[in-house]
């Protein structure tokens, strides 16, 4: 029961964050560790800034929201 609630809460948090363009940080760290071992990993603050800038940079005509 406790596990289930925790899992749902995590999913909820992930959904809310992705809604504003922020993917899962733990997943990013995990990905860098396993597929690019030894290469630098952004800390959370850098990760946050990088994602924020990329969401609104509008490069290559990307439109992230609708009317």
């Amino acid at each position: 029961m406790h596990e289930r609630v925790k899992h749902l809460y995590n999913r909820f948090k992930q959904t809310a964050r992705l809604m504003v363009g922020l993917p899962d940080y733990d997943n990013y760290v995990e990905h860098r560790r396993t597929t690019h071992p030894g290469e630098p990993i952004m800390n959370y603050e850098e990760f946050f800034r990088e994602r924020q800038l990329s969401r609104y940079s509008g490069s290559n005509g990307r439109i992230g929201r609708c009317c």
Partner: peptide, 27 residues
């Protein structure tokens, strides 16, 4: 291309939320 940033395999319910938040607007 999984890079943990732009290309991320995402749970479908989480992605549904992302997609819906992007398409829902004033129109």
């Amino acid at each position: 291309y999984n890079d943990g940033l732009d290309y991320v395999p995402t749970n479908r319910y989480v992605l549904f939320g992302h997609h819906f938040a992007a398409i829902a607007g004033a129109g």
